[in-house]
């Protein structure tokens, strides 16, 4: 049984189908990159995987004892959080909540975990900074730290590099690779970056309201659709 199995899933908003005929599976330790144009249904699929949106038809099944409490999630940037009064530490700490059980307050272990993740994303000197006063890229990193604090099993990232500079982007890829390879965390990442699909991930899912491609990254580089998306870079 795979970690995640998607069978013929389709999603609708207000009766309008936005993405359908999804068939793929994610194995333990996979690094799957989801690509496609704006509005092709990537975030919708992510919400489906996270249980935030129920598929209109078909099914999404978790295997290997995976539960929502073992998932870390980095949402696509939202404006609504931008004026929220909270420190980086408070934000990251809230990621550890899913492992808290019924205890009312954070434990020392949870606090240490949060600090570790803040350090990992290179935000330690900003740990007491106000979240709303950080740059877009710094906010993104703080939210990545929160996602890391929430999981040891599956990390779902919706456009993690959207507002990062080239150096931060390279750092981010490096970090995700390390988490995937050395810590055995399965990664599902939505990205617009052809480089990520071709060189970072080991599986690619290409959406265009339907599933245009699903397979390994090396097959994707050889496929027509892959060549088109990757342009000159795929060879």
């Amino acid at each position: 049984m795979s970690l995640i199995q998607v069978n013929n899933a389709a999603f609708r908003y207000d009766g309008k189908e936005v993405v359908s005929e999804l068939n793929f599976e994610v194995e333990h330790c996979d690094y799957l990159c989801i690509v496609g144009e704006n509005g092709s249904g990537k975030s919708t699929l992510v919400k489906g995987l996270l249980g935030l949106k129920t598929p209109y038809s078909g099914s999404i099944t978790f295997g290997e004892g995976l539960t929502a409490r073992q998932i870390g999630y980095l949402p696509q940037q939202k404006e609504s959080q931008r004026d929220f009064p909270a420190s980086v530490q408070e934000v990251v700490l809230s990621g550890t909540l899913n492992s808290m059980g019924i205890r009312p307050f954070y434990t020392r272990a949870q606090r240490n975990n949060a600090l570790t993740q803040i350090e990992r994303v290179g935000m330690l000197q900003h740990k007491n900074a106000a979240f709303r006063e950080l740059s877009g890229g710094q906010q993104q990193r703080a939210l990545l730290a929160r996602a890391l604090a929430a999981t040891q099993k599956l990390l779902i990232l919706d456009e993690p590099i959207a507002s990062l500079d080239p150096v931060a982007t390279a750092d981010m890829y490096h970090l995700i690779e390390e988490i995937n390879k050395h810590h055995g965390v399965t990664v599902i990442m939505v990205s617009h970056d052809p480089h990520a699909a071709a060189h970072e991930a080991n599986h690619v899912l290409h959406l265009e309201h339907q599933q245009l491609f699903f397979g390994t990254a090396s097959d994707y580089r050889k496929s027509d659709i892959g060549k088109r998306f990757l342009g000159g870079e795929g060879r």
């Binding site: 935030l52 934000v91 909540l97 009312p104």
Partner: peptide
Amino acid sequence: FVLFYPRLFAVTFDESFSRATGI
């Protein structure tokens, strides 16, 4: 309120993250 404080923070700051991660 005091006993729920961490949880209230989480659902206030980002409800969909909380829900997605099993809260």
